[in-house]
Design a protein around this nucleic acid. Structure first.
Lengths: 185, 185
DNA sequence: GTCTATATTAAGATAGAC
DNA sequence: GTCTATCTTAATATAGAC
């Protein structure tokens, strides 16, 4: 089996238990591979497993989020497509954000640069849509941050309350909120 | 020294390194107490230390956030006072939220009920202010969730980008945003 | 109350047979 | 490529002297 086979499972584990909580014992149990076999696929150990998951996620963003934002349709349509993609990724709010999880754990230092990069790429792509719609660049930048804030914040709240509805509401309202004209409240 | 002496230091450690990253070795170094002395103050070990920190934080909320929201002044003023308090707690966005950190780590299960309780109390207090201002109850509830989403989300983004400005902007804009009339966008 | 010293467990990682 | 067995380290926790 190519090592890509195990990436979704690994991502699952990191999302559910965090970097620290995803122990080799758990990973071994979940993948069905012995610890030594894991080192066959990932000689760098757990850190390399996490890197592989990040690369997978970066690929997923390139394949799903960026095309959704850059494809055809007006700005509102594109932002709605982005939200649909995130709804899948986070399973309607039932699953926390891997980036936030790693950022909040003891492995932050190891992956901080990588995580920042993902956020910056994402924010820039959103801002580009808003600029195309005629918003001034600085406001577009702010609104792109608002998008990240709403999505990340609603995932935190959904986790805290054990209730995905804040996330779902945010996805509903966000596209129109981002597109509203510059002078509206 | 009473054990309360060490609580701020412990809170600091849990905020900066997460529950898993706050090892006894680090706690010992930061407090200046030997490991054995830590068990004198906290016989239940690390878990009891975290409980003590949560109790401290719950007390802080009761002493700072709830009075800010329930004190004199109109709704806008009260929400602004709340934001000022959070600005202090999170040091202008330079410090992550302890609740989110624990929620995202492997100790989630241990403290989830406690964390949910804090959020619910907080949201209810915000909603109460908005209802007093004349907003319908369900909208007030939604807006209180928006407040939590904005604050938590901006802390995540500030951490990811290594830049506190999203948090500061949210604190600036949030009170007016929460108070806007029911029919405005 | 604080220490030194130590016990116990579990984590990450490796060796080497098959 | 997968396993069993083992190593090393570090984390939580305790015993007992002062």
């Amino acid at each position: 089996m190519p090592r890509e086979t195990y990436i979704p499972c690994l991502m699952d584990l990191f999302q559910q238990h965090g970097y620290d909580g995803a122990t080799l014992a758990r990973i071994s149990a979940a993948t069905g591979l012995g610890k030594a076999s894991l080192y066959h696929y990932f000689p760098g150990g757990k850190e390399e497993m996490a890197v592989a998951v990040f690369e997978y996620l970066e690929g997923w963003m390139s394949d799903h989020i960026l095309p959704a934002l850059r494809g055809e349709g007006d700005g509102l349509t594109r932002l709605q497509r982005m939200c649909t993609q995130f709804n899948t990724l986070y399973e309607g709010g039932h699953r926390p954000c891997l980036l936030a999880i790693v950022l909040m754990g003891s492995a932050r230092g190891l992956f901080h640069d990588r995580i920042r990069q993902v956020f910056q790429t994402w924010l820039a792509a959103i801002a580009e849509v808003l600029v195309e719609m005629g918003l001034p660049a600085d406001l577009a930048q702010q609104r792109s941050e608002d998008a990240a804030i709403s999505i990340q914040g609603s995932l935190v709240l959904a986790l805290a309350l054990d209730d995905p509805s804040p996330f779902q509401r945010v996805l509903q309202e966000l596209p129109a909120e981002l597109c509203r004209p510059a002078d509206a409240s």
